[in-house]
Design a protein around this nucleic acid. Structure first.
Lengths: 160, 160
DNA sequence: GAAAAATCGTCCGTATACTGATTAACAGGA
DNA sequence: TCCTGTTAATCAGTATACGGACGATTTTTC
């Protein structure tokens, strides 16, 4: 196990790919001041109005504790609203603010461009192949993750 | 840009792959109490005795600020030694401790197994293809990263 | 050789990631 | 109704990741 082996280890390359993906995303989305995690949360809250934090974390495969801080920052930026639920007093339901809607609208094309730049080094005909393999790797390793994706997280009724 | 699009975005899948890779690594390497970052640092210090933190950060593509904390923890665990350089008083040179050598020896096979588990979901004939593409993506996007890999970081003379 | 530029380690602030513990609230059964 | 098990949110602790700034020092340049 030498230094040169490190450079060819999947874990190492994935870590660097993550550095690159985040960097490109932040660069493209600087005008809207969004991180990749915040963007994903924003989209998912919009598509699931009235969802709670725990379900949201399952839908985007975020750690529940981390998500609390993320939502706090997004609330401070007035992108989302957190309000108590009448039915269940433990829950805080989430909704996009008008500002959140506007920001998300503007962020869409920027995020898209970041994704294109991530794959840009691959030959066009390889990009789909790569994405298919990456998807397979993630999907079949889902349970290995500390925070598995849970698509069965019930779509919260908008009973805020 | 809907929620389902998120699931097929390179950035999102890379983030989840990173979660998985770290999780599998920590699981396999629990006996030696090493994180992926600490393992890479350990290997690189062993292969470049007397290196300083700045060069090390370039060789493994770590952020310099982060690396300071990582090295601090590794010194606390007595895996490495940091000592002032005679020649240049700004520099602290790095060396593996005997315990660091032992731990690294034990960690090698464990780290190897973690890497195999990461790629396990792919068909055997696809693994090489995937790694080649991933390597290409990282290499050609190197400059896009906040902390580009710098192989020209001079191999520090062991002139501690 | 002294001023200017570059370098090294460090610290601060922010954001993500995960564990484990705690507290409040809910839900079902005895 | 009380008890139990579960769930939601939060907090404390650890680790990674990055930018920016700072002091000490070294190197460059004039």
């Amino acid at each position: 196990m030498s230094m040169d082996d490190i450079y060819h280890m999947p874990g190492h390359l994935i870590r660097r790919a993550q550095q690159i993906a985040v960097s490109l995303f932040l660069e493209e989305c600087a005008p809207v001041d969004l991180t990749p995690v915040q963007f994903a949360a924003l989209v998912t809250v919009r598509d699931n109005p009235g969802i709670d934090a725990t379900r949201l974390s399952a839908l985007v495969a975020f750690d529940r504790s981390t998500l609390g801080n993320v939502l706090e920052r997004m609330e401070a930026k007035e992108l989302i609203q957190r309000s108590g639920s009448k039915g269940d007093k433990r829950i805080k339901v989430l909704h996009l603010s008008p500002k959140g809607e506007r920001v998300l609208q503007e962020a869409g094309p920027l995020a898209q461009r970041a994704q294109e730049r991530i794959l840009a080094p691959l030959a066009p005909e390889d990009r789909e192949i790569f994405m298919r393999m990456l998807g397979q790797l993630v999907e079949l390793n889902n349970e290995a993750s500390r925070v598995p994706l849970r698509l069965d997280a019930v779509r919260s009724s908008d009973a805020a």
